[in-house]
Design a protein around this nucleic acid. Structure first.
Length: 407
RNA sequence: GGCAGGUUGCCCGAGUGGCCAAAGGGAGCUGACUGUAAAUCAGCCGUCAUCGACUUCAGAGGUUCGAAUCCUCUACCUGCCA
């Protein structure tokens, strides 16, 4: 399902092609997040127009609402949401953290060094509780209890029917102790084997359904030995003749060590399998990830931030709501080729945000998604052209300088 | 012209003697957000300032140890009756 194209001369970065039943993905690629089978505020037609190659939805959210049976009856995720291209689903693993230890807290990416397993969210307040067999969730919608195990996650993701699905894993935070990281990783690895077995069982049991590819998820936090071992073990895992078809790199990762951690992991993973860096990231993180050999990326930032009037430009990110935009009749970014920048001014978008008009979120989400998709597309082109290092230096130089001067 | 009610910080609006620089909204300003409990959340929001000090509740005067709160007059607004 994956073929490598060009590679970087001095780093693991590469271009490639992922083939799915719903089409191909040219990598590296930025995959917009559509948690509940919609990229918030953006029509599928706009997503196509802005160059998105795939969408990533979430098994936990779709399980609670509308229910995987309904997605299944609709003909699967792609048909249900009217997105013709490839789709991914996350396993619900992220919610083990966001509704568990990270409950009501920011997922700090720079809080490393504090070793305290339980300081984050007190156990009694959490909506998710992990044990060795799985996770018990209290629905954030109605408080009802639900149980996810690796098998349940696979069953749900098979029903939802995305082209690429992820193994059910546990995320830790940067604040967890080494001891907890080890324990958690052991659990995640055991779950990976169970996911693979269940995935194989479901695939064989339902031969008429479109093939789905299962990615194993590498955890291990910031520890090199754990990361390498996790990657190695997943790469060698084979159950009933089945292996993972790709790999996800997961976990809360300290920004500064992102590239390093990706290299440890990708060093151990097979070259002919795609690697997805989960939940990353900002432009500077994407450069790190691509250079380190990751192929696909997803992140909520472009849409989440757009809804509160933050937009990206080649000279950094800024807030459209500040007074400076009130009488600025230029586009968000003068080098952008998106629909929004072609047709709308900052002053107009500023007005829409002030007036709390919905289309503001739509227009800015289109812009931000285009910005990220195009950025990673330009990295792909640069790898092919042998100009990645130049692009990184030049692009990031401008972006970071602009960002810093704004502060 | 008569009777009644009202005038609070940028706006709306609570507050009827000390716990009031004054609740709560809104607006404004800052900041955060990385496999989305997120069209969300946090902070600031009279002035100067480090605790703290100073000037405020239409205006002027008064009562009181103490007034946004009580009294008098003035100005303006609203309702009902002429």
């Amino acid at each position: 399902m994956f073929s490598v194209g060009s590679t970087l001369p001095d780093a693991p970065g590469r271009t490639g092609t992922i083939t799915t039943p719903h089409g191909q993905i040219q990598t590296p690629a930025f995959i917009p997040v559509g948690t509940k089978a919609t990229v918030k505020a953006v029509l599928p037609e706009s997503l196509s127009d802005l160059g998105a190659q795939a969408v990533l939805a979430n098994a936990y959210h779709l399980y609670l609402q509308p229910g995987p049976d309904i997605v299944d009856e609709a003909g699967g995720l792609a048909a249900f949401m009217n997105w013709p291209g490839p789709t991914f689903t996350d396993s619900g693993g992220f919610q083990v953290l966001s509704l568990g230890a990270g409950f009501k807290k920011t997922l700090a990416m720079d809080a490393i060094g504090v070793e305290a397993d339980d300081v984050i969210a007190p156990g009694k307040d959490r909506l998710a509780h992990v044990d060795d067999d799985g996770v018990t969730f209290k629905s954030h919608l109605d408080g009802s209890r639900h149980r996810f195990t690796p098998e349940v996650s696979m069953q749900i993701q098979h029903q939802i029917g995305a082209d690429i699905i992820f193994a059910f894993d546990e995320l830790t935070t940067l604040m967890n102790s080494r001891a907890y990281q080890e324990l958690s990783l052991e659990r995640t690895q055991a779950w990976a084997a169970r996911c693979l077995a269940e995935h194989q069982r479901l695939t064989i049991a339902q031969p008429d359904r479109p093939a789905q590819a299962l990615y194993g998820v590498v955890q291990g936090a910031q520890h090199e030995d754990l990361r390498r071992k996790a990657a190695r073990d997943l790469a060698s895992l084979e159950i009933d003749g089945r292996r993972f078809e790709g790999y996800g790199l997961g976990g809360a990762i300290e920004k500064e060590s992102l590239g390093t951690i990706c290299r440890w992991v990708n060093d151990e993973l097979p070259e002919d399998a795609p690697r997805h860096l989960l939940g990353i990231g900002e432009p500077e993180d994407l450069f790190e990830g691509v250079e380190a050999g990751c192929d696909t990326f997803d992140c909520v930032t472009p849409t989440r931030v757009a809804r509160s009037s933050r937009v990206y430009s080649v000279r950094g990110r800024y807030n459209l709501l500040v007074a400076a935009s009130r009488r600025d009749f230029g586009p968000i970014c003068d080098e952008c080729d998106c629909y929004t920048c072609a047709n709308y001014t900052k002053a107009y978008l500023h007005h829409l945000f002030k007036a709390n008009e919905m289309v503001a979120a739509t227009l800015c989400s289109i812009h931000n998604e285009r910005f990220f998709v195009r950025l990673v597309d330009s990295m792909r082109a640069a790898i092919t052209a042998g100009e990645f290092a130049e692009l990184k230096t030049e692009w990031l130089g401008r972006y970071l300088a602009g960002r810093d001067s704004r502060d």
